[in-house]
Design a protein around this nucleic acid. Sequence first.
DNA 1: AGTTAAGGTCAATGGTGTTGGCATAAGACC
DNA 2: GGTCTTATGCCAACACCATTGACCTTAACT
Lengths: 235, 235
Amino acid sequence: MAKAVVPEEARRRRRPTRQGTVLSEKLIVETALRMVREHGSAGLSARRLGAALGADPSTLYRYFEGMDGLTLAMGEELIGRALAGWAPTGRWRDDLRALGLRIHGAYLAHPQAALLTTSRVTGRPREIAADEAILGILRGAGFGDEDAVRIYHAYIDQSLAFAALDAGPLALTDEARASDEERWESTYARLPADDYPNIAATAGLLASRMPHSAYPVALEMLLETAERQLADAGD
Amino acid sequence: MAKAVVPEEARRRRRPTRQGTVLSEKLIVETALRMVREHGSAGLSARRLGAALGADPSTLYRYFEGMDGLTLAMGEELIGRALAGWAPTGRWRDDLRALGLRIHGAYLAHPQAALLTTSRVTGRPREIAADEAILGILRGAGFGDEDAVRIYHAYIDQSLAFAALDAGPLALTDEARASDEERWESTYARLPADDYPNIAATAGLLASRMPHSAYPVALEMLLETAERQLADAGD
DNA sequence: AGTTAAGGTCAATGGTGTTGGCATAAGACC
DNA sequence: GGTCTTATGCCAACACCATTGACCTTAACT
């Protein structure tokens, strides 16, 4: 193999590129995340990333095993950012709400990475830390182990699932996204009331609500049911 | 514009390709779904689809507005399959549960297509039919328009979001999927109880529950909250 | 039978990820 | 400080990709 990826710790020679930048895994991941954020997921390509870094595209392959590897590294970084600076308050429902919105938000800030990352179990430190924290909140609130695991599962998967779903539109080209959003007004608002009475009756509400994420509502509904189950069990 | 897409109904001339196939929107979508199922989502390209159909890639642009349009059509087909043969019972909670599981299941049957499709608004007939049906169930149950739309939004997005999330692992190679699943036993079950008391206490439950979809549980929690809100409003 | 244009094909454009070979300078060693 | 090794960046090339415009054939309507 002519090109083997060298682990970051083992790098010794830091040779600047022709344009003067000194590369590192960290710099590359951060630049990639910034590009995705600023120019949409279509804006990220080996060539453009190389150009942004002032380096030849092929140089990236000295740091990551292809664009997939780079994307996974971006996902790792996102988990870290979601948890950074978070501290529990002791009120379980508030804590779960805040944590959920943080995770959802961190992924949404980088849709491209979110799409490729959310359904993988990495087993890496920061993912484990998040799981431990959530289970701790639930068990601390008084849920039995069985209930805690059941709710934890629904909670974490729902958070990731909505992150991926909501990331979808953001990962599209501006054009495709605009046309999707507009569809609620251009198509749904014009359906004949005879054939589609329910859509017609709620067209205005739909058009204003659908382009936004349903995650907060779904999260609240989940927490509501959990709280009630806790109360019922306590009786 | 040299190439305008002609709507399926308006097509009159059915000229066979050089290799003898007679194209149609239906045939193309079905072939695309089959390709995605057999070769993964990366296996779908205009060139390969053209080859599979025995037609020049550019011919596809007479039927769809680019690959994006084809993707939307695939999503529409999946929704249609979910709805086919379904009939409401009149018990709203049962109906929503059954419909949700159907949609979830239809997408999971084509994991790679689900990943491409779930976050798109197609505005095509069968998607509209599904939306009309769901809104009808909710409004028929007695929910006010505002509540109906809020719950509809959370409900449909939750179904699609879990479909996409659960499709992720299925879209992986058998190898990668097995290693992801095994990670609950190989990594999580072996964490030191001192550092990770909550994971350690529930390791067995986690390993048995996590590899399965959380959708049914999450759906039930959503329906539970909805029912309670309906009861509260009725007082 | 003649006309029209739908619906095929071909060729070209400018993008993509990725790889093998090469050159050069960074750091180790004497 | 001089020399050597090799890590790391660069270049050129490959095989794909979506998409478009020009062209041609022939089915279907008059």
